[in-house]
Simulated scan of single mutants.
Amino acid sequence: MSWWKFGKAAEPAAVPEPEKPKKKICCACPDTKRLRDECIATNGEENAYCQALIEAHKACLRMEGFNV
């Protein structure tokens, strides 16, 4: 089979670029960041509740387009 289609060469499909974050990471997800920071300051990073807040903040950052 020929790579010619109706007299024109087939063009490769455009590969969409990953969407870049619109904010700086320090300014993204202020609500989850505040809760996470307060929990770590009062209870320590190893606290189970703080661990859940850390994961929630990471999930929020991923939704904003950051690779964390």
Rank of each mutant, 00 (worst) to 15 (best):
P12G: 03
N47K: 14
A52L: 12
E19K: 14
A56T: 01
W3P: 08
V68F: 09
K20M: 10
E38N: 14
T42F: 15
S2Q: 02
R62A: 07
A28D: 09
K58M: 03
M1S: 05
A13K: 14
F66R: 07
T42P: 00
D37H: 09
G44K: 15
N67V: 06
P18E: 06
M63R: 13
P18I: 10
A52E: 12
A56I: 00
P21L: 04
T32I: 02
A28E: 11
E45Q: 13
C39Y: 06
I25T: 03
C39A: 14
K33H: 07
N43F: 14
A9C: 05
L53M: 13
P18W: 03
A14C: 03
C27M: 12
A52D: 10
E55M: 05
E64A: 06
D31C: 00
I54D: 14
H57S: 08
G65Q: 03
R36P: 00
W4C: 04
N43R: 15
R62Y: 06
S2R: 05
R34F: 02
T42Q: 15
P21R: 08
N47L: 09
K20D: 08
W4I: 04
K5E: 01
H57Q: 12
M1W: 07
I40D: 00
K33P: 00
A59H: 04
W4G: 02
A14I: 07
P16M: 11
E11D: 11
A52Q: 13
K23P: 01
C39N: 04
V15T: 15
E46A: 15
W4E: 00
M1D: 03
M63E: 07
E38P: 11
E17I: 14
N67R: 08
A41K: 15
S2I: 01
H57N: 12
N43C: 11
H57P: 01
C27R: 09
W3C: 07
G44P: 07
R62H: 03
E17K: 15
W4A: 11
D31Y: 00
C39I: 02
N47W: 13
K22P: 00
A56M: 03
E55W: 01
L53E: 01
C29W: 08
K5H: 04
L53I: 10
F66T: 07
F6M: 06
M63V: 01
L61V: 03
A13I: 06
G7R: 09
I54K: 11
K33R: 15
V68T: 08
K23L: 11
A41R: 15
A52W: 05
L35S: 12
N47Q: 11
E38C: 10
L61P: 05
E64S: 05
K22V: 04
W3H: 14
A41N: 10
C50S: 11
R62D: 02
F66L: 06
A28S: 12
T32M: 13
Y49F: 12
P21Y: 06
D37I: 07
D37Y: 07
S2D: 02
A52H: 06
A28R: 15
R62L: 10
I25L: 12
G44W: 10
T32A: 13
K23W: 09
D31M: 02
W3D: 12
M1E: 02
E45V: 08
E46L: 10
